Computed example of a mutant assay.
Amino acid sequence: MISVARSVTAACALGAALAACGTAGTPDGARPAHARPAASPSATRTPVLTPGPGHLTPVFEHGPRTLGKTVALTFDADMTAGQGPRAATGEHFDNPGLIGTLRTLKVPATIFMTGRWAEEYPAQARSLGHDPQFEVANHSYSHYAFTDDCYGLPTIGADRMKSDVERAYAAIRKAGVPNPLPYFRFPGGCYDHQALRALSGIGVTAVQWDVVSGDAFATDADAVARQVLDGVKPGSVVIMHCTRSAAPTTERVVRTIVPELRKQGYRFVKVSDLIGETNGQGGNRPGSLTPG
């Protein structure tokens, strides 16, 4: 029987309706041989989880704990439809310094991008989409919540959820990302049975996390770094953000945690690598909907 839960974490504790929660070739190894084709939105061969009964959208939270010390850093590139005027007056919803640091440190990463962010920063979206160090996935069009009571975010009705995800893919492709992956991260991390059912048939795997960095609106980089280092386990997925206005300490956090995790023997991979390794193991059985 499928256990259905809503994943609500402090990672996206926004507090205000329009304050977004933030805002890959693999250097560490080839894609697993058992990776299966994505059902749709990506044209490349990408590992996905098997849908649950009734084609219910599956949820991925972390990779296997027993297949080596791997960890995936993920970054949400958030922007809402109403934040265009704020960007026009100089507020930064991008973070090119962070991306540059990841490149310098040779850390592969998965970027969950809203369609609105891709429209605002098409050159950066295109650069990420063509860089084999990164993979780009879907974070909705405008960061509207898919459930009620999700950190004050405005919500989207069930009848518009599928079209919202499709609109985001269209915007991301139009910005120049050729193959956005069939992975979707719910805004705020909030989902329920209705949301998972609404997205069934699109062919996406919903990607959550098991390590909350706490970088959203944080001012103490050392505290965020400690939280990440204390939480990481083999196969972990870490949620962070790549927007300067909402997560100003993240680049400093990355500069701290990357050498320390490497010292501990961890290897950085992308979400696609962890999903490929999972293949139905651990807490990510097809259709398993336990919270992160």
Score class of each variant (00 low, 15 high):
residue 10 A to N: 04
residue 17 A to T: 09
residue 23 T to R: 13
residue 23 T to W: 12
residue 26 T to M: 05
residue 29 G to K: 04
residue 44 T to F: 05
residue 47 P to C: 05
residue 47 P to S: 06
residue 49 L to A: 03
residue 50 T to I: 11
residue 56 L to R: 15
residue 57 T to F: 00
residue 57 T to N: 03
residue 65 R to K: 00
residue 65 R to V: 00
residue 66 T to E: 14
residue 77 A to M: 15
residue 78 D to W: 02
residue 81 A to M: 05
residue 83 Q to H: 04
residue 83 Q to W: 04
residue 84 G to E: 11
residue 88 A to P: 11
residue 90 G to R: 02
residue 91 E to N: 06
residue 92 H to T: 07
residue 92 H to I: 08
residue 95 N to P: 06
residue 97 G to F: 09
residue 97 G to C: 05
residue 105 L to A: 04
residue 106 K to T: 12
residue 108 P to W: 14
residue 113 M to C: 12
residue 114 T to S: 14
residue 119 E to D: 11
residue 126 R to K: 15
residue 130 H to G: 15
residue 133 Q to R: 14
residue 134 F to T: 13
residue 134 F to G: 09
residue 135 E to P: 06
residue 135 E to Y: 01
residue 135 E to D: 12
residue 138 N to S: 03
residue 142 S to E: 06
residue 143 H to K: 11
residue 144 Y to R: 15
residue 146 F to N: 12
residue 147 T to V: 15
residue 149 D to I: 15
residue 152 G to V: 11
residue 154 P to I: 09
residue 164 D to E: 13
residue 166 E to S: 09
residue 166 E to M: 11
residue 173 R to I: 09
residue 192 D to A: 07
residue 193 H to K: 06
residue 199 L to Y: 04
residue 203 G to F: 08
residue 204 V to G: 01
residue 209 W to M: 15
residue 213 S to R: 14
residue 218 A to F: 13
residue 220 D to G: 14
residue 221 A to E: 08
residue 221 A to Y: 02
residue 224 V to M: 12
residue 224 V to I: 11
residue 226 R to H: 06
residue 233 K to G: 03
residue 234 P to E: 07
residue 234 P to I: 13
residue 236 S to N: 07
residue 244 R to C: 01
residue 245 S to K: 01
residue 250 T to A: 05
residue 252 R to V: 04
residue 253 V to F: 00
residue 254 V to P: 13
residue 255 R to T: 03
residue 256 T to V: 05
residue 257 I to M: 08
residue 259 P to L: 09
residue 264 Q to C: 13
residue 267 R to S: 11
residue 271 V to G: 02
residue 277 E to I: 01
residue 277 E to H: 03
residue 279 N to Q: 10
residue 280 G to T: 06
residue 281 Q to K: 10
residue 281 Q to G: 05
residue 283 G to V: 10
residue 284 N to K: 07
residue 286 P to D: 07
residue 288 S to A: 03
